[in-house]
Simulated assay, not measured.
Amino acid sequence: MAKIILITGASSGIGEEAVKRLMTAGYTVYAGARRLDRMKSLADAGAHVLALDLTDDASMAAAVDTVMQEAGCIDVLINNAGYGSYGALEDVPLEEARRQFDVNLFGLARLTQLVLPAMRAQRSGRIINVSSIGGKFGEPFGTWYHATKFALEGLSDSLRMELYPFGIDVVVIQPGATHSEWSQIAHESLLKYSSDGPYAKGATAHANMMEEGHKGSVPAQPSVVANTIVQAVQASKPKTRYVTGGLARTMLFMRRVLSDRGFDALFRMIGRQMAKSKA
Rank of each mutant, 00 (worst) to 15 (best):
S85W: 09
L252T: 14
N80S: 05
D65T: 07
Q221I: 14
Y30V: 04
S259I: 01
G134E: 08
A232M: 12
R249N: 13
G135T: 10
A33K: 00
Y193K: 02
L52D: 10
R249G: 15
R126N: 11
I133Q: 11
G9K: 03
A51R: 12
L108P: 08
L54N: 00
I4T: 15
T66R: 05
T204Q: 15
Q69T: 13
Y83S: 14
P117Q: 12
I127Q: 05
E211A: 06
Q231V: 04
G245T: 11
K136N: 04
M269H: 02
S131R: 04
Y83E: 14
A109T: 05
K136M: 05
R268H: 04
G9T: 08
P222K: 08
Y86C: 15
K215H: 00
I7M: 12
D264T: 10
T250P: 06
G213D: 04
E90Y: 10
A118Y: 06
K278D: 15
G271V: 09
S85H: 09
Q122P: 04
L258K: 11
M251Y: 06
V230Q: 12
L258T: 02
G271W: 01
P222H: 11
S85R: 14
M251K: 06
D75G: 06
L89F: 14
D264C: 13
I168A: 10
G72M: 15
A147T: 15
L108E: 00
G84H: 06
A10C: 01
S223F: 00
Y164Q: 04
A31Y: 12
R120Y: 01
T112W: 12
H187R: 14
D91Q: 00
G245E: 08
I128V: 11
V115Q: 02
S124Y: 10
V92N: 12
L152P: 02
N79F: 05
V67E: 00
V49E: 03
E95S: 15
V19T: 11
L111V: 03
S195W: 04
P175M: 06
R255C: 06
Q113C: 08
A147R: 12
K278W: 15
K201L: 14
V225W: 10
G245A: 02
A51E: 09
L152G: 00
Q100H: 03
A186D: 04
A147W: 08
A51L: 09
S132D: 07
S12T: 12
F253R: 00
L155F: 15
V230Y: 08
A220E: 06
L89S: 14
A62L: 04
Y86Q: 11
L159S: 01
T143M: 07
L247V: 05
R256P: 07
Y30K: 02
S194D: 12
T240G: 07
A109Q: 02
G32A: 09
Y145A: 01
E70R: 08
S59Y: 00
G46W: 09
D102P: 13
L89G: 01
V243W: 07
T228K: 14
G82S: 05
H206I: 11
A81N: 03
G246Q: 10
M60T: 15
N227R: 12
T228Q: 14
A62P: 01
A232D: 09
S180V: 11
D169W: 11
N104E: 01
R160N: 04
G125T: 03
P93D: 10
N227S: 06
D102F: 13
S194M: 13
G72C: 10
A58T: 02
A275R: 14
A275Y: 02
P165F: 03
P198C: 12
